[in-house]
Design a protein around this nucleic acid. Structure first.
Lengths: 134, 134
DNA sequence: ATTGTTATGTTATTTAACCTAACATAACAT
DNA sequence: ATGTTATGTTAGGTTAAATAACATAACAAT
């Protein structure tokens, strides 16, 4: 369960790949970031690195745009959905801050979760936007 | 079943990410390619793009190197393993060549398999090297 | 002992793929 | 008519790739 979230939040993909995967232009992707609909990581040299979650988000944005929703609306929709997550339980970020892993250890953990994380998978995946598509 | 293979063979990752994921140097990764232990794709501009399968392979190579096997040996091991795959059934490449999808259609298919491919997953994953680790 | 091979590091040079910023504009809202 | 939103395009700068060449430690073979 947690492994999935780790894997899906790992910063892995360049903007070029994300463009292909989402069929969005670089301009669009950057614009959505500018408006805080996504917040991809950066490399040391300032290149964007996107996670699977980011890609899911972008696909959801695209779908909503196509349905005529403007960015303000999409922002609200995302806010509402964040609200309706279990609000008391601590999230992944919080857990990471609590744990005192070194960067080294954390990297290894993340890497392992990514490469071999598909094994103990639950049938239901949260954050998958396909339920909103026709 | 096939969706997994598609997803795992998609060229997605830059060499920088692969370096982090495998803890191999760029030199090592390129050297292994030079010796045909992996054959990553290239972008139009000649940058390498690695798949999950490539990463699995690299991890296996690393493990074998650490166990004292040289590249010639690793090459043989891989050859033997390829042999013991079902040799009569047509592989993914063959299937792709037979199907007359346009590049556009193929991209979409691949993208979809990657992003939403985790749902109908079988418990056993082929190509996962973890069974060789202690 | 010498010579050759293997696997890797390092360094130099080139360039694809990214970055930001600025200006343009169509569609829409006021 | 004017302003705003979402996107395209272009210009100029930087990073993370690429290849190629040389260096070398470890080991193998002569």
């Amino acid at each position: 369960m947690s492994g999935n979230n780790i894997r899906r939040s790992m910063p892995l993909f360049s903007i070029g790949i994300v463009m292909q995967l989402t069929e969005l232009s670089a301009r669009q992707i950057r614009y959505y970031e500018e408006h805080q609909l996504i917040t991809p990581e950066r490399t040391e040299g300032n290149r964007r690195l996107f996670s699977l979650n980011d890609i899911d988000r972008l696909l959801e944005i695209k779908e909503l745009i196509e349905q005529g929703v403007n960015l303000a609306g999409i922002k609200k929709i995302f806010a509402v959905k964040e609200d309706s997550q279990q609000p008391t339980s601590e999230n992944f970020e919080t857990k990471l801050k609590k744990s005192d892993l070194t960067d080294e250890e954390l990297r290894k953990l993340l890497r392992n979760e990514l490469i071999h994380g598909g094994k103990h998978r639950t049938t239901l995946r949260q954050g998958d936007m396909s339920r909103f598509f026709h």
